[in-house]
Design a protein around this nucleic acid. Structure first.
Ligand SMILES: NC(=O)c1ccc[n+]([C@@H]2O[C@H](COP(=O)([O-])OP(=O)(O)OC[C@H]3O[C@@H](n4cnc5c(N)ncnc54)[C@H](O)[C@@H]3O)[C@@H](O)[C@H]2O)c1
Ligand SMILES: NC(=O)c1ccc[n+]([C@@H]2O[C@H](COP(=O)([O-])OP(=O)(O)OC[C@H]3O[C@@H](n4cnc5c(N)ncnc54)[C@H](O)[C@@H]3O)[C@@H](O)[C@H]2O)c1
Lengths: 203, 203
DNA sequence: CTCGTTTTGTCCTTCCGTTCACAAACTCCT
DNA sequence: AGGAGTTTGTGAACGGAAGGACAAAACGAG
């Protein structure tokens, strides 16, 4: 369920505001979903609400976190410390949401002995070693598109089983490895599509 | 249809390789979708294939580009030139895919008289002026979450009708304005969810 | 010109996610 | 204690996307 993290974020905001309990309607409007859908989503995890009252914010948050697997910190590595890799390495939001960037890797020799966001940039050849030593299972690819499949293969070879790919390529990976793709150009193109439709109807 | 840009990219790659024609099967494997689905998608645009032969790569690419609205260049502004905003401003992939970053805006006074990726960083108060002068309809938000709703409101007020939001917030916008959200933490959390499932079955 | 091969375009079935609607469960007030 | 008012959890209806399957169309060889 891809919506659980959204609920989780909304619940965290409620905790900040010292709100102890909330109805499905409240959560639904806060997250922009239908309240029936929200209740059905939550019912898959178990019966954590109280009829006539709502959900205990803290308790529900813990239950969702447990379901998503965020009761532990996940070690993450980032490969490709260019424009995007820098931004990701510096992003503090990962840390606060259950992820710990344990290593940055790049193939370019210029990076030797440099640090980004307090972490040394390590040579790409050390991938296997790092993955093994830190039991990393999640890797982020922010290299150019041509290198992405190679990097993915090496990651899989090293034991990584989940990949977040920013390069605009379709990665082919063996069964059992999950890949999620984030493609900003495609997002913009989808916006452009709708934008064009608007422009067509108007004049 | 959110898959058209994916087809577009694959077709561009085929053009690079001087491949003049291709079957739905070819395109389907290149993009990782089912060939029946792909044909159905394309049939919505019209009958651009030849039975027994396949699709003319160049022609199909143009038709999809036209449908998506990429026969023109879309001007785009980026608000919030921090870690992520820098990366976006420096990204050359937008330019080659039909988008032109026409302005960078940030509220922080430190940015006065600085340039990023060859563009001056302009004060946020100039938003309306820029949007009007350049007829911008697409805006990117890469500010902290607290500022995102404000920025979105100002954008909408200035005449922007499509927003790409990187801040982890649900934006509320009037009817007729499109918002797409990119949330990297959520992507990672979805990976963590699957990762946890794998770990549960194994031992 | 005909036949066999290839590939599109589309009908039809299946399946999954969404939404409605409502009984069951709980609280609070009198 | 009972009734009024809330809110959950879920059965059932709905809608639309996905995929299987195949007829229609194009091409080339003989
Ligand atoms: N910058 C953005 O805002 C942005 C936006 C959308 C998509 N992307 C995509 O993200 C990827 C990275 O973008 P970027 O702007 O950071 O590019 P970049 O060129 O700035 O950085 C790429 C980095 O990857 C490293 N690299 C190259 N080959 C490698 C390999 N085989 N192993 C390890 N490291 C390797 C390079 O040394 C470089 O440091 C690209 O695929 C790009 O299309 C970037
Ligand atoms: N850096 C990443 O890799 C990353 C990853 C995922 C999500 N995000 C999200 O993207 C957003 C930006 O991240 P970042 O790391 O670049 O943050 P950042 O703090 O480095 O940059 C934010 C920029 O926005 C500017 N800003 C603040 N308020 C503004 C306003 N009202 N109007 C205009 N500009 C304003 C600030 O001056 C700053 O330059 C955040 O919401 C973050 O959660 C970032």
């Amino acid at each position: 369920m891809a919506r659980l993290p959204i609920y989780l974020r909304a619940l965290s905001a409620l905790v900040e505001d010292n709100i102890g309990t909330c109805s499905s309607e409240d959560l639904a409007t806060a997250t922009g979903v239908n309240s029936a859908k929200l209740r059905k989503d939550l019912s898959y995890l178990g019966s954590y609400g109280t009829r006539g009252v709502g959900y205990d914010v803290d308790y529900l948050r813990y239950q969702i976190a447990r379901e998503v697997g965020l009761t532990q910190d996940w070690p993450v590595i980032i490969v490709g410390i260019g424009n995007l890799g820098h931004a990701l390495a510096n992003y503090s939001g990962f840390r606060s949401r259950g992820f710990r960037v344990v290593a940055l890797l790049d193939a370019a020799p210029e990076f030797k002995d440099t640090e980004v966001a307090g972490l040394p940039v390590r040579p790409f050849v050390e991938l296997e070693e790092i993955v093994r030593a830190q039991s990393v299972s999640i890797g982020v690819i922010s290299t150019p598109a041509q290198a992405a499949q190679d990097v993915a293969d090496r990651m899989v070879g090293a034991g990584i089983t989940s990949i977040l790919n920013f390069a605009p390529t379709v990665l082919s990976v063996p069964e059992g490895v999950d890949v999620r793709k984030v493609d900003l150009s495609i997002e913009l193109q989808i916006l452009a599509y709708h934008e064009q439709r608007k422009a067509e109807v108007a004049p």
